[in-house]
Design a protein around this nucleic acid. Sequence first.
DNA 1: TAGTATATGCAAATCATTTGCAATTGCGAT
DNA 2: ATCGCAATTGCAAATGATTTGCATATACTA
Lengths: 117, 117
Amino acid sequence: MTIRLTDKRKQILQVLKRQHGTMSVKDIHNKLPKIDQVTIYRSLDLFVKNKLIKEVHLGKEGMLYEYQTEPHHHAICDDCRKVRHFTAPDEKIKKLLGLEDFEVEEIEVIVKGVCKK
Amino acid sequence: MTIRLTDKRKQILQVLKRQHGTMSVKDIHNKLPKIDQVTIYRSLDLFVKNKLIKEVHLGKEGMLYEYQTEPHHHAICDDCRKVRHFTAPDEKIKKLLGLEDFEVEEIEVIVKGVCKK
DNA sequence: TAGTATATGCAAATCATTTGCAATTGCGAT
DNA sequence: ATCGCAATTGCAAATGATTTGCATATACTA
């Protein structure tokens, strides 16, 4: 099985790269109305499996996808629903967790609260 | 608006308390087949809003609910899908995050990887 | 105990995501 | 260049989780 970087896949990845943040399938479809939603779903799955992008659950609103230039975590405001990024040294988090008998592959921190502007 | 702790709600909460772990709506419904799923959905929403229980997303499989005697985080094995709990001092995590301008209400850490038994 | 607000069940709607299948396209071998 | 086949795409329909509308049942207050 080969993974072809077709034109549509390139477009989808491009949109995600430009966004600098999370997008839903709908968001992507709005930007690329000529590409079928199903194709977007399948492409995203493929990208996730190949670790080109990340998927995150930040609420009940369905899965979100994100191209990360550098790994980061998310804080979401309960009021305005805006998402903020923040970085934290994975190694230190790992140490805090102290998980024995577990081969850690990915750590995801989701912070909920209210942003005071 | 008053929150009535009706018999059905008590049963649902009871089931969650006994579980010591996450449950899906289906899981709960299996244990309490006489209570309609819709009632379970509505009760869980209510419990979450009143902070009696927590809801977590650990995968694509839909929302999970959990009664936590003490706050903890989750590690999920990509192979066996088993969920493990672990605690970590919130204060220290908060410090690592270094979120300015954000009123933190809840921190959720989700670890993905493989458990080596 | 009557009156009213809340809770419940059922059927149907909605929303995100997946699947089946037929048509199209990309790419390597000729 | 083009033939052939595997991978990709779109469309329609299926699935699965969750929500909504509404009529009935139940709990609490006066």
